[in-house]
């Protein structure tokens, strides 16, 4: 279903689709679904050249990847302009990630310029690329290979108008990536679904283990008290993958793994008071270890979603954090299972 295509335009390289610049409810629904990880990897646009308005041989050419959300943000900000969009194949991945992996790269840009005959379509020789494609694209190499000059636009599509008005110049603010609260919140759903394949089985195992007691096994015990470990686990999980990103700048320490322990224990305190961590000291300590370790791991995982963590930094952090997280979680689990047999 390509509701964003409105007819065709005749060009020297054959008919090309003309697209709408306004979002419909389908586009909004699709954007919402992809934020919640639903069909995220299939949300794609067919690579090729698209017309916005009534472009001609002198019109500007914007380049983007084929993740539909990227394409949608671009076209929405081109309203009232006459221009071309060259969509390259980034396997449905957003611009920045694709650039980091190389699929939004020099090779693909050059290949698309050639197979879609861009040089026959327009006489001008400038391409406007999103700034965040620069980790994958070498502007001077594209020029050497195709004659097209790459001009890096602003980070955000919403600044395109100002960028054009300023004569293809982006201000310092438009060139910088910030990571405000709203941006962080938008990323949380995808991180929550990170562990989706374990979300049923792990709680079930804990529910089952809750039936163990010094006398043997009790199904009643499992059914009556088994919800407590499930609550503890989900709380620790969400502390790491939702609370930590939301409160990121306000949680002390720079290492994400330590931030995660802080939030994991922060949510463990009310559970301690509510009694879901158990009765004996050993059981409570075991839960602090498990929840701290789990939250720490999930928080560390959020480095992949941030806009500022370096590979060297994450590698340095993980060298100590990963063993510590595994130790915390296994000690906690072992401690908790032992308490099944000692205390009721």
């Amino acid at each position: 279903m390509t509701s964003y295509i409105h007819g065709e335009i005749e060009t020297p390289v054959g008919p090309l689709p003309r697209i709408a610049t306004k979002w419909t409810h389908l586009d909004r629904w699709g954007a919402l679904k992809t934020r919640w990880s639903v069909g995220r990897m299939k949300y794609r646009v067919r690579p090729g050249i698209y017309a916005v308005g009534n472009p001609d041989r002198d019109s500007r050419v914007f380049v983007t990847g084929n993740f539909k959300l990227s394409f949608d943000h671009l076209r929405r900000n081109l309203e009232g302009l006459n221009c071309w969009i060259l969509v390259i194949d980034t396997k449905g991945i957003n611009v920045w990630c694709a650039a980091g992996k190389g699929s939004f790269g020099t090779k693909e840009v050059v290949r698309r310029i050639r197979i879609h005959h861009l040089a026959q379509l327009v006489d001008q020789r400038k391409l406007i690329l999103p700034q965040l494609s620069a980790p994958g694209v070498s502007a001077h190499e594209v020029r050497k290979m195709t004659g097209f000059t790459v001009v890096y636009g602003p980070v955000l599509a919403r600044d395109i108008r100002a960028f054009l008005d300023a004569g293809l110049k982006a201000s310092d603010e438009m060139r910088q990536v910030n990571f405000p609260l709203f941006e962080r919140l938008k990323l949380i759903p995808v991180d929550i679904f990170y562990g989706k394949q374990y979300m049923l089985i792990v709680p079930l195992v804990f529910l089952a283990l809750s039936g163990l007691n010094p006398q043997g096994y009790s199904f009643d015990l499992a059914l009556n008290s088994g919800w407590k470990p499930v609550v503890n686990l989900f709380s620790g999980y969400l502390a790491g993958c939702a609370l930590t990103p939301a409160l990121l700048p306000w949680i002390p320490f720079r290492r994400f793994s330590i931030k995660g322990v802080v939030t994991g224990w922060f949510v463990a305190v009310p559970l301690l008071l509510a009694g879901t961590l158990g009765i004996s000291l050993m059981e409570k300590v075991s839960w602090f270890l498990m929840m701290g370790g789990l939250s720490s791991f999930m928080a560390m995982n959020f480095t992949g979603s941030t806009t500022f963590t370096s590979l060297s930094g994450v590698q340095k952090e993980m060298k100590t954090a990963l063993p510590a997280q595994i130790a915390m979680a296994s000690l906690g689990l072992a401690g908790w299972i032992i308490t099944r047999f000692i205390f009721i």
């Binding site: 994400f256 992949g304 963590t309 590979l311």
Partner: peptide, 12 residues
């Protein structure tokens, strides 16, 4: 610069 994905999941 030694560039790469600054992402724990990627490193794992």
């Amino acid at each position: 610069v030694k560039s790469g994905v600054g992402c724990a999941a990627g490193i794992i």
